[in-house]
């Protein structure tokens, strides 16, 4: 049996704002259209910074310098590195964000250095000491969507159910 830490919530993790550029995580190409055979506008070496404009399927439209084009979405990563924070005396896993936002850059992002747990409203302490909010718990239930309304909502687009197998192992071998 797998041993895992008791926990619970979360997970898309956290943190805040300040839009940083995405970085290419390998040498790739900026193309004129979101297609593999579209004209190459620019060769992008690894770690080229690009600004995201929009995306379409598996492609992101980005700006590289003054050139706008399309790059494979999976060739883009965040570039922010957060320095490891020392664990506090309590030893709680909450006390540091080490590597939370990691990237491949070796230069630590100094702006992140003191960003431990300065949260408003949702810090671990806030959550531990909160008073149960029964009014909003009731409100949450009142906003619930039942199956028929969810199905009707999907039909408006329309979004149709698709048979998709679970992912296991890996299926590399497709086009990158």
């Amino acid at each position: 049996m797998k041993l895992f830490l008791p926990l619970g919530l979360l997970l898309l993790c956290t943190i805040a704002t300040a839009q940083e550029p995405l970085l290419t995580n390998r040498a790739t190409e900026l193309r004129a259209a979101p297609e593999f055979d579209a004209k190459v506008l620019q060769a992008l070496p690894e770690k080229s910074p690009v600004q995201l404009i929009e995306r379409k399927g598996a492609w992101s439209q980005v700006k590289s310098g003054t050139v706008t084009g399309w790059v494979r979405m999976m060739h883009l990563r965040g570039g922010v590195v957060v320095e490891a924070q020392p664990q506090s005396a309590g030893g709680s896993a909450l006390s540091g964000f080490s590597r939370l936002l990691g990237g491949n850059r070796t230069q630590p992002d100094t702006r992140s250095r003191n960003a431990t747990l300065g949260v408003r409203g949702l810090s671990p302490e806030d959550l531990k000491t909160a008073s149960p909010n029964v009014q909003d718990l009731a409100k949450l239930a009142a906003m619930q969507a039942d199956k028929p309304s969810a199905e009707k909502f999907a039909k408006e687009v329309p979004l149709t159910k698709v048979d998709v197998a679970e992912l296991s192992g890996n299926d590399r071998g497709g086009r990158k």
């Binding site: 993790c13 805040a16 550029p21 995201l52 990563r77 939370l100 936002l101 431990t116």
Partner: peptide, 27 residues
């Protein structure tokens, strides 16, 4: 796309933070 958004953010500001050292990075 959402993970890429997370990957481009610094913890400076509104920071949310019940994240943890052992949490895998968005990258």
């Amino acid at each position: 796309a959402a993970l890429q958004i997370l990957a481009t953010m610094t913890p400076d500001e509104a920071g949310g933070s019940i994240s943890m050292s052992t949490h895998p990075t968005p990258n």
